[in-house]
């Protein structure tokens, strides 16, 4: 991703963002509320059209308007900050929709894979429930299962632990560590530095529309070089 720029009207949210995610790597984006973390993930997923810059995914410039965005999105998984589960479908229906409609998997096999995925996030017994009848943490895990079930090449996760109690944070963290060891490439946003420290290969601090500082968790969180980063981290710890 290089030189990515995105503005909403006169509000310039991203002003030349550069970073690279290698295969199998986990990049954690940190930054103040409103700094554009969610916007960055939506741009990477082509849900927002960038105003400038280039995003390359698996060797292809996906910001090229000739690229089929639906096809690109089918190779990525995005978990929304607000889950955005489909209330008219069951939990299993949510998880299998993309398998059936995008990837052309037969209903029986989709169901099987969906159930296996739900089992993995510990929600097999909720397969027939409606999303509205689940707790926030359960909905969060369904959202992760829905994005994961198609085996995406890149997972984009927006604040996946913000609604969870510490115990569940641990569970999700384990899940993400598992994914990492399986070689799933991930970009995730978080406000939780402990979480960032545990799973990240690279931490990027987003501020004023650019990546202010990036490096290993030990560097960025443990020993920040930039004044801004230090200020942000001390506010978060306070």
């Amino acid at each position: 991703m290089s030189g990515v720029r995105k503005a909403f009207g006169s509000n310039v949210v991203l002003d030349g963002v550069d970073f690279t995610v290698n295969r199998g790597e986990c990049v954690v984006l940190i930054g103040a509320s409103g700094s554009g973390k969610s916007t960055l993930l939506r741009c990477a997923n082509l849900l927002e059209t960038v105003d400038d810059g280039v995003i390359t995914f698996e060797g292809e410039d996906i910001t090229d308007p000739r690229v089929n965005g639906d096809e690109v999105r089918s190779r990525m998984g995005l978990v929304f900050q607000s889950y955005n589960l489909f209330p008219h479908l069951t939990v299993l229906g949510n998880v299998t929709l993309a398998l059936r409609k995008v990837h052309g998997v037969a209903a029986a096999e989709a169901e099987q894979r969906g159930l296996a995925m739900l089992d993995r996030v510990g929600l097999a017994e909720k397969a027939r429930a409606r999303p509205d009848d689940l707790s926030g943490g359960q909905q969060q895990r369904v959202a992760i299962a829905r994005a994961l079930v198609t085996n995406p090449r890149l997972m984009l996760l927006d604040e996946v632990t913000s609604a969870l109690d510490p115990e569940l944070v641990g569970e999700v963290l384990d899940l993400l560590s598992d994914l990492k060891s399986e070689g799933v490439t991930m970009v995730l946003n978080t406000h939780e530095m402990g979480f960032a420290r545990d799973v990240a290969d690279t931490v990027c601090f987003l501020h004023d529309g650019v990546i202010h500082e990036s490096g290993t968790p030990a560097q960025v969180i443990g020993d920040p070089q930039q004044e801004r980063t230090r200020a942000f981290l001390s506010r978060i710890r306070a």
Binding site: R42, N45, L47, G69, D70, E71, R73, S74, R75, M76, G77, L78, F80, N84, L85, F86, L97, A98, K101, V102, H103, R146, A147, T150
Partner: peptide, 9 residues
């Protein structure tokens, strides 16, 4: 957005 993110047209 959620639908499109899954790759649905």
């Amino acid at each position: 957005l959620a639908g499109r993110a899954l790759g649905l047209t």
